[in-house]
Simulated assay, not measured.
Amino acid sequence: SMPSEILIKIFSCLDAASLLSVGCVNNRFYHLANDNGIWLKIYSSRFQPKRAARKMKTEQTEAGSLGCAALCDRNPGYWKKEYIAKQIAAVKTRVMQLVISLDPYTGLPCKNREAIKASGLSWIIVLEDRYGKKHVMEKANLLFKDTSVTILWYSTCWPCLDILSSLKLFGVMPLFPDQSRAPRKNRPHRCSLIAEYHLANLTESSVAVGADKLVQLFSLSPGLLVGLWKEKNEIAFVMASLHYHQLLERSTLGSTTVQYVLPLNQPVLDDTDPEYGLHDYSLHIDMHGRTCTYLCETFRSLFCRKGGV
Rank of each mutant, 00 (worst) to 15 (best):
E5H: 11
L7S: 03
K9C: 06
A16L: 09
A17V: 15
S18T: 15
G23I: 03
G23E: 03
N27P: 00
R28A: 05
H31W: 09
L32D: 01
A33H: 05
Y43K: 02
S45N: 11
R46S: 10
P49F: 05
P49T: 07
K50D: 08
A53I: 12
K55D: 09
K55M: 14
T58D: 05
T61V: 11
A69Q: 14
A69H: 13
D73R: 09
R74K: 13
G77R: 03
I84N: 06
A85C: 12
K86C: 11
I88P: 01
K92I: 04
K92F: 05
Q97Y: 05
L98R: 00
V99K: 00
S101V: 07
P109W: 04
C110T: 08
C110D: 06
E114W: 07
S122H: 08
L127C: 13
G132W: 02
K133Y: 03
K134I: 03
L142D: 07
K145V: 08
T147E: 05
I151K: 01
Y154R: 09
S155D: 12
S155C: 06
P159E: 04
L161T: 02
I163E: 12
M173A: 13
M173T: 11
P177Y: 01
Q179T: 10
N186P: 00
R187T: 05
H189L: 12
R190Q: 14
I194T: 00
E196Y: 00
E196F: 00
Y197A: 01
H198A: 11
H198K: 13
H198T: 13
N201V: 10
T203C: 12
V207H: 12
G210T: 13
D212T: 08
K213T: 15
K213Q: 15
Q216I: 15
Q216S: 15
L224V: 10
N233L: 15
N233D: 15
A236V: 07
M239N: 10
M239T: 09
A240M: 08
H243D: 13
L248W: 01
G254M: 04
Q259E: 12
L262W: 04
P263T: 10
Q266H: 08
Q266Y: 09
V268D: 14
L269W: 10
D271T: 15
D271G: 14
E275F: 15
H279Y: 09
D280P: 00
H284M: 02
D286A: 11
M287Y: 09
M287A: 13
G289P: 01
T291D: 13
T291S: 10
C292N: 08
F299K: 04
R300T: 15
R300V: 11
R305L: 14
G307A: 12
